[in-house]
Design a protein around this nucleic acid. Structure first.
Length: 532
DNA sequence: GGTGCGCGAGTTTTT
DNA sequence: CTCGCGCACC
């Protein structure tokens, strides 16, 4: 049987405190690379070891990926008892409450079906329907208020849903919140879920907050985990203040900060830390590198985005040089510390998907395998399919009623998801990079206009953009390159951007500035690139 | 119902 | 610049 020492083994002091803390409202501030998931998993094990009924524990995440990881790692510790712990996404929790309260005869609508349903209500325009679907979603999540017109539309939409016993994604949370207004229902769930662990608490939206608040009551069993410096989803309603105000919200709260970073070199930890300290809306926290100082960051100035892509390709080639045959025989090398690289040790991250194309082309030309994330055939289908596949795997296909309308194709391909085993360089947005880590990271387009993003919209939340840049920087384990072009073609426009102001916030002793001069003649390009 | 042209918009996105 | 929608025409 698992002992107390087993559960605490290998933990640092604040991690131990977070694992063993008594059931008071607990705020765990977990900076990048500080062992957040490890801590959560051990806390679950700790609670069970203390005699808590596993069925009284609720661990909520945002993504299926996170839920799966948490579930697997908990399973490795607790074995069979894991079954009774609720580990899942907000939406899965909502679905469970829905089914237990209303019965299981319900239909779940994906974004596409939702748009189809809305289409006749907005004058048969699929464009309008999609816009409406997005607005309705934001309204349901409490991210935006409905105007009169939208309210009318929503009423008709909800009627259409009710006629079909159908629920959209947001209803999976909104309806449970409504159901919990019934004291009998509420007490049932309060009694069941006495210990709540909420992952990525900095990213919860007002609706999710309401759900948690209802179940958690005075927060006695609530453990909120996250990093306010990594809140990057305000555009879809996430509200950082839920995290920042936790201690006012739950006056008996205790805060524990995990500050030992095991992921990145000292230079990367310090550089990202100096940069993010320019934000005001944050909790004062230090992140200390456990690892050596390592190499300085490289800030690379390039003539244009083609050169930027070529420079990245060149750096990768330089690190892969001559080892490719060897690699074939040793298998994928993610995380290998022996100095030899696999392609999957590299990632290129950027602010907008539009930047991917040039880079992909340069990689293709150089023979560098890459996977571009976030590009899906039909994204809506993919989303729904993934959701359905996941719900099936958790709930099972049986039971009365249909979980979803339509047929289940397995075209359930995750082809566009990040596959860490693929021996390919990963290309993705800063948003998608959250939670991942790579030995070598290239941030492309570190320019004013892109980060902070102001190209299409004047208004910009500079602190949110800084957090996004922070997420990007902190993905790197060993080496970090920050690239900016002096000329960039985007949306048919020729831009002449300044370097991102965030670059200037990195102390000069932590970075090397390199500049590739404008080429006068084309043939000099190779010589210039050879410098790197 | 299928093809083609013109116009307009164009961050970030899980479930 | 590129894509996709909506409309017009076959």
């Amino acid at each position: 049987m698992m002992t107390k020492d087993d559960i605490l083994q290998g933990l640092n002091e604040p991690q131990k405190q977070a694992v063993t803390a008594a059931a008071v409202p607990l705020l765990v501030v977990a900076g990048p690379g500080t062992g957040k998931t490890l801590t959560i998993v051990r806390r679950i094990a700790w609670l069970v070891h203390q005699g808590v009924n596993p069925a009284n524990i609720l661990a909520v995440t945002f993504t299926n990926r996170a839920a799966r990881e948490m579930s697997e790692r908990t399973g490795a510790l607790l074995g069979d008892q894991t079954r009774d712990v609720f580990i899942g996404t907000f939406h899965l929790l909502g679905l469970r409450i829905l089914r237990e309260t209303l019965g299981s005869d319900l239909t779940l609508l994906g974004r596409e079906e939702q748009t189809d349903l809305l289409k006749p209500l907005v004058g048969d325009s699929s464009r309008k329907a999609r816009t409406a679907a997005e607005r309705i979603s934001r309204i349901k999540n409490g991210a935006e208020k409905a105007d009169k017109e939208t309210r009318g539309l929503m009423e008709r939409y909800q009627t259409a849903l009710r006629d079909r016993k159908a629920f959209d994604f947001d209803d999976l949370i909104l309806t449970p919140v409504e159901l919990l207004a019934d004291p009998a229902v509420l007490s049932r769930y309060r009694n069941r879920f006495r210990y709540l662990i909420i992952d990525e608490y900095q990213d919860i939206n007002p609706l999710q907050y309401r759900l948690i608040k209802l179940i958690a009551e005075d927060g006695g069993g609530l453990c909120a985990v996250g990093d306010p410096d990594q809140a990057i989803y305000a555009f879809r309603g996430s509200d950082l203040r839920n995290f920042l105000d936790f201690e006012q919200d739950f006056p008996k709260a205790r805060r524990i900060t995990l500050s030992e970073n095991y992921r990145s070199s000292g230079a990367i930890v310090q550089a990202s830390g100096s940069m993010i300290r320019n934000n005001r809306a944050r909790l004062d926290k230090n992140v200390n590198a456990v690892r050596d100082q390592g190499a300085r960051l490289t800030v690379l100035s390039l003539p244009d985005e083609q050169d930027e892509a070529a420079a990245i390709a060149g750096e990768i080639e330089g690190r892969m040089g001559g080892t490719s045959h060897y690699r074939i025989y040793t298998g994928a090398g993610t995380g290998s510390q022996d100095g030899s690289y696999g392609f999957s040790d590299f990632a290129v991250i950027y602010r907008t998907n539009a930047q991917a194309k040039v880079i992909e082309e340069a990689f293709n030309a150089a023979g560098i395998p890459c996977q571009v994330l976030g590009r899906g055939g039909t994204r809506q289908n993919k989303e729904r399919d993934e959701m359905i596949a996941y719900l099936r795997s958790v709930i099972g296909e049986d039971g009365p009623g249909t979980l979803v309308d339509g047929n289940a194709d397995k075209l359930l391909t995750l082809a566009d998801q990040y596959d860490p085993r693929a021996d390919a360089v990963a290309l993705m947005t800063m948003h998608m990079a959250k939670g991942l880590e790579f030995r070598v990271v290239f941030i492309a387009g570190a320019e004013d206009g892109l980060v902070p993003y102001t190209l299409m919209k004047e208004v910009c939340d500079i602190e949110e953009e800084r957090r996004l840049f922070y997420v990007g920087m902190t993905r790197a384990k060993d080496e970090l390159f920050l690239l900016h072009s002096r000329i960039r073609f985007l949306y048919g426009r020729k831009l002449t951007p300044e370097p991102s102001l965030f670059l200037g916030e990195i102390p000069s002793e932590l970075k090397d500035n390199k500049l590739v001069p404008d080429r006068k003649k084309k043939q000099s390009e190779n010589a210039q690139m050879g410098l790197f």
